[in-house]
Amino acid sequence: MNYNTDSGNTVYVGNLDPRITKEQLYELFIQINPVLRIKYPKDKVLQTHQGYAFIEFYNREDAQYVIQIMHNTVKLYDRLIKVRQVTSSIGTSNLASNSSRDITLPVAKLFIKNLADSINCDQLTKIFNKFGRTISEPKIFHLSNGKLKCAYVYFEDFEKADLAIKSLDNQLVANSRINVDYAFKESGKGNAKYGDEVDRLLNKEALKHDMLK
C-alpha cells in the first residue's frame, strides 16, 4: 500500500477509559485494517491517558471502513467508543513527523489551584458544569510535596471556560480561596497557555465538525 501523510487516513478515537493501553488499541483496530501508527497522548504531569487517541491507517478507504464499523458500536470498559474522521484543520498531519510534540484536541484546559481537601472529582464536575459542558472528568493532583491540591478541568469550548474563570477565580469554594486560569501548554514554548487565538479557531472548527462529543 502507498502511504500518504494525509489526515484522511487518520481517525479520532474518543471516550476511552484511561485504563486502556496503546497495545490494546492496536490489537482492537488491527482486526479491522492494518494500522500504521497510533498517537495516544498522556497528561505530562499525571502521566495518565487523556481519553482519546489518533489512529492512522495506510489509506482513506481503510480509515472510512473503520469509522463505519466501530463508531458507537464497540464498548471498552463499559464505554461506547467514538470513532470519527479527522480534518486537516486539527493539525493531525504532524503524526508523520519526528517531533515529540503531542497532538491534542483543541479543548479549553483549565488549571485550578488551592482546592480544599474535601473537594473530589464529582464535586468539581458539578461546580464547573454550571458554566458549560466539560470533557472527561477532572484530574486532581498535588504539588508542593502534597501540600497544594490542584486540578485540571477540560471545557468543550473556550467561551464557557472564560466564564468559569471570570466567575470562580479568587472565590471561596469549601472555605478555600481557589485560583482558576488556563493551564500552561505541556509542549509549548516558554510560558504559553491554552486559550490563544489559534486554540480558539481550532476549537470552533472541532465543534463545527462534532469532534468533541
Score class of each variant (00 low, 15 high):
161 A>Q: 05
20 I>Q: 03
44 K>Q: 11
200 R>L: 06
175 N>Q: 12
197 E>P: 01
80 L>F: 06
125 T>D: 01
176 S>T: 15
64 Q>W: 02
123 Q>E: 09
135 I>H: 06
146 G>C: 03
42 K>F: 06
147 K>T: 10
210 D>M: 04
162 D>E: 14
8 G>V: 04
30 I>A: 06
206 A>I: 07
6 D>W: 13
11 V>W: 04
59 N>P: 13
153 V>K: 07
203 N>P: 02
30 I>D: 02
56 E>K: 10
183 A>M: 15
44 K>P: 07
43 D>W: 11
209 H>R: 12
166 K>S: 05
160 K>T: 12
166 K>G: 00
154 Y>W: 04
73 T>E: 03
141 F>T: 09
207 L>N: 04
138 P>H: 14
39 K>A: 03
24 Q>Y: 06
88 S>D: 14
180 V>Y: 11
199 D>P: 00
6 D>Q: 10
78 D>V: 01
132 G>S: 10
131 F>Q: 08
13 V>W: 02
68 Q>Y: 02
112 I>H: 01
147 K>R: 14
28 L>P: 00
196 D>C: 14
20 I>P: 00
168 L>M: 06
48 T>R: 15
160 K>A: 05
72 N>V: 08
118 S>E: 14
135 I>F: 02
103 I>T: 08
181 D>Q: 12
193 K>C: 06
175 N>V: 02
147 K>H: 13
26 Y>R: 03
193 K>H: 02
95 L>K: 13
40 Y>W: 13
187 S>P: 00
36 L>W: 15
52 Y>R: 11
166 K>C: 01
89 S>K: 14
167 S>V: 03
148 L>Q: 09
43 D>L: 10
194 Y>H: 10
149 K>A: 01
8 G>D: 13
200 R>D: 05
79 R>P: 03
143 L>H: 14
100 S>R: 11
154 Y>N: 05
10 T>E: 12
35 V>Y: 09
62 D>T: 01
66 V>C: 02
199 D>F: 01
18 P>N: 13
203 N>K: 08
44 K>Y: 10
85 Q>D: 05
101 R>M: 15
188 G>R: 15
104 T>C: 12
11 V>I: 03
121 C>F: 03
195 G>Q: 03
102 D>N: 06
212 L>H: 07
31 Q>P: 00
84 R>V: 04
153 V>A: 13
19 R>A: 05
73 T>V: 06
123 Q>K: 13
174 A>V: 05
86 V>N: 07
164 A>S: 11
204 K>S: 01
118 S>R: 15
122 D>L: 12
198 V>R: 02
66 V>S: 04
141 F>P: 00
72 N>E: 05
137 E>L: 14
21 T>Y: 12
78 D>I: 00
195 G>C: 14
44 K>E: 10
42 K>S: 07
162 D>V: 07
67 I>H: 08
162 D>Q: 12
203 N>R: 08
153 V>P: 05
